[in-house]
């Protein structure tokens, strides 16, 4: 993959926790408007990579460069957490869902538009007195939230507390919430975990349409090989913090090192890798 059509270039990224080297000199590219999957057995360091990209961890080495459509380049390792979402336009979901459980689904999506709404409310002062410009902005925000609620099939649950939704619904709501920040790069940590086959298929469809309709690049951690094989354009395989293979889904699936890594870790997963047919 050439450098010019990459949205994210990770170069020799390392992350140490005391003696543990969770990520070791990892380099990979995520293509613009592509779905890049990051796979590997449990404990390979995938979530740690996400935490570095999204600023929750300061990497101990390496660089991560984000190139926006307009040519602006941002060194992610220099920004801290909330600025990565705000300025670099990188959104993420979490392996253990992190919604605002006591707030409604709609409110969750409103919180995601915080920075835009904060400006529109004149940093609260205009909003306090109900300025018309603020009201219009709030209406637009509700419209955007409604759009995404419809998109993930949760429009009927809009006024229900997020914590009361079923597991699969919570997963989709978290994706909708991330999309409400209008990201250039969407990082999804195991979005299909705990979903049944039908829900997984719907998820694949959703991710494909997010890429097609919104031009969002997706970086995806996933154990569910049927999802990975079906939707990803490029797969990066990690084990023990290093990259052991990368390439098109079919190539990676047949790679003996990948099979060995999965066999070493978990027989079930290895079988899943080998058996899944895209």
């Amino acid at each position: 993959m050439s450098d010019t059509d990459s949205i994210l270039t990770v170069d020799r990224l390392s992350m140490r926790f005391g003696g543990i080297v969770a990520v070791n000199e990892l380099s990979f590219d995520a293509g613009r408007r592509r779905i890049t999957a990051l796979i590997g057995p449990n404990g390979a360091g995938k979530t740690t990579v996400f935490n570095c990209i999204t600023g929750f961890y300061k990497p101990t080495g390496g660089t991560m460069r984000l190139a926006h459509d307009n040519g602006r380049e941002i060194a992610l390792e220099r920004l801290n957490d909330f600025r990565i979402s705000k300025q670099a336009k990188v959104a993420r979901t979490f392996q253990n869902i992190r919604l605002f459980p006591g707030m409604t689904a709609l409110e969750n999506l409103m919180v995601a538009q915080h920075n835009a709404l904060m400006l529109a409310s004149g940093f609260t002062f205009l909003g306090l007195f109900g300025a018309p410009s603020w009201r219009a902005a709030e209406r637009r925000a509700i419209e955007r939230a409604t759009f995404w609620l419809k998109r993930v099939g949760l429009i009927d649950r809009a006024d229900d507390a997020a914590g009361n939704l079923a597991y699969g619904d919570q997963r989709r709501l978290e994706i909708a919430r991330a999309m409400c920040t209008e990201p250039a790069l969407l990082c999804l940590d195991e979005p299909a975990a705990g979903l049944n086959a039908r829900e997984s298929a719907a998820l694949s469809e959703l991710l494909l349409s997010i890429r097609a309709d919104h031009g969002t690049s997706i970086l995806l951690i996933e154990h569910d090989m049927s999802v990975v094989m079906e939707i990803s354009d490029h797969v990066v395989v990690m084990d023990y913090g290093v990259k052991i293979a990368e390439g098109a889904p079919q190539t990676v699936r047949d790679d003996p090192r990948v099979i060995a890594a999965y066999l070493g870790a978990d027989e079930q997963e290895a079988i899943a890798v080998m058996e899944s047919d895209a």
């Binding site: 929750f56 957490d81 909330f82 409310s121 609260t124 909003g127 919430r177 920040t181």
Partner: peptide
């Protein structure tokens, strides 16, 4: 009551619910 319905109030409540998620959404905690 007004503040609750403004972005700042929702951010306060979101902060109460999950601070990490707030930061992931670009909220300056």
């Amino acid at each position: 009551i007004r503040l609750r319905r403004l972005p700042i109030g929702r951010a306060w409540e979101a902060l109460r619910e999950d601070e990490v998620a707030c930061r992931a959404l670009g909220i300056n905690t």
